[in-house]
Design a protein around this nucleic acid. Structure first.
Lengths: 120, 120
DNA sequence: CAGAATCCGATGGGATACTG
DNA sequence: CAGTATCCCATCGGATTCTG
């Protein structure tokens, strides 16, 4: 496993670029794809949310993509799914604690993105 | 433009998920793709580096992908390219200041990635 | 309501060969 | 040495339809 270097603040260390296991690459892959960030942002801002409510809020997303993205995020441990045995069916999604730890970092990334954007 | 919310530490704000301009999405797109992180890590750790030297260090990358990734990174303002009119040709790549600002954030992301990895 | 199934086009990335 | 040009394939994402 490629360790993280706190000495020089490099994302990885030693034999980086990431020849075996790269924690940075794996972290980025968790939030990759077209719709995961919008989903996480929606859940972070509004808290627990139902499927169709998410679909309304995230403009342009289809059933297929919302369902598959939610399933991936759940498998990755970033969101949790709770299903209520009612009729009509109700399913609620929310962020996990792991994902809540991630949000401040993404916020810094957003700040950086806004910064480099205006300087060009 | 979607502003950044420092109050609740959300990556974006208001009408997020990111309907018009999303600084987080744009930041992530800058470092997306298969080879950009390895390239940035290599340049961060070893400093100014030549084309073929990068190719040797980043195992598995092809001429095509290295060249296109470097070109994109340069257009995005993350690396700078300096060409020396010698024979044989010499071209050196290095990180820009903008990109150096990014590395500590990526380091946090790597830490987070390592953390969630071991807890599962 | 909350999805799954299917199909299909676009994009990303690799292999190989060539060039100033 | 530092790339380009071509071709090819796999994966991603969208549209549509269907279901417990």
């Amino acid at each position: 496993m490629t360790l993280i270097d706190d000495q020089n603040n490099s994302p990885c260390k030693d034999n980086c670029p990431c020849m075996d296991y790269c924690p940075l690459g794996s972290a980025l892959s968790l939030i990759g794809g077209k719709w995961k960030i919008p989903i996480l942002c929606a859940l972070f801002q509004d808290g627990t949310t139902r499927f169709n409510e998410l679909k309304r809020k995230i403009r342009g997303i289809t059933n297929t993509m919302l369902a598959s993205s939610l399933k991936e995020l759940e498998e990755e441990g970033l969101i949790s799914r709770e299903q209520f045995m009612e009729m009509p069916l109700r399913v609620e999604y929310s962020l996990t604690d792991d994902c809540r730890d991630l949000m401040p970092i993404l916020n810094q990334l957003a700040h950086w993105g806004a910064q480099v954007h205006i300087t060009k």
